[in-house]
């Protein structure tokens, strides 16, 4: 269970998914940020050789944070799939985005770089795991 109050204040709703249910579909549009409350999810990416699992996220881990990069037109860069029964919290994304927009330009640059690098590195890892790189 997540005890973190700071997160709880941001959770707009909760959802439960059964094993192997797709929570986020790569390529689809969506602007929610999620947090794993109970259970685990897998981060998968499409490659020439089918889907590759790149990471496993557990309780307290955030996913979907890349919407901060390009709000509204955000296309999901990876799929997130339930690994067993999982309960996730949907964050009040608008509030998160507002908080983000209120930051100094430096901090925004810093966070944006971090997320861009995560996105690009993940893409390269998946390409390499498929042997395409």
């Amino acid at each position: 269970m997540i005890e973190d109050h700071l997160l709880l204040g941001y959770i707009a709703s909760e959802e439960t998914y059964e094993d192997r249910t797709v929570i986020i579909e790569e390529g689809s549009k969506g602007e929610w940020i999620f947090v794993v409350l109970e259970g685990r999810v897998k981060v998968k990416k499409k490659t020439e050789k089918g889907k590759v699992t790149l990471d496993t996220l557990k309780e307290g881990d955030i996913f979907g944070e890349m919407v901060l990069l390009e709000q509204r037109k955000g296309v999901r860069t990876a799929s997130v799939v339930a690994d067993g029964r999982v309960r996730v919290g949907v964050l009040d994304t608008q509030r998160v985005v507002r908080d983000y927009e209120s930051l100094s330009p430096q901090l925004k640059d810093l966070i944006r770089t971090l997320i861009v690098r995560l996105k690009e590195t993940t893409a390269r890892v998946s390409a390499m795991a498929a042997g395409a790189d």
């Binding site: 973190d4 700071l6 997160l7 941001y10 940020i33 955030i62 944070e65 901060l68 964050l91 509030r95 998160v96 908080d99 983000y100 209120s102 930051l103 810093l110 966070i111 971090l114």
Partner: peptide, 8 residues
């Protein structure tokens, strides 16, 4: 805001 620290 702590939520952004958390995400970062």
């Amino acid at each position: 805001p702590p939520i952004l620290k958390y995400i970062a």
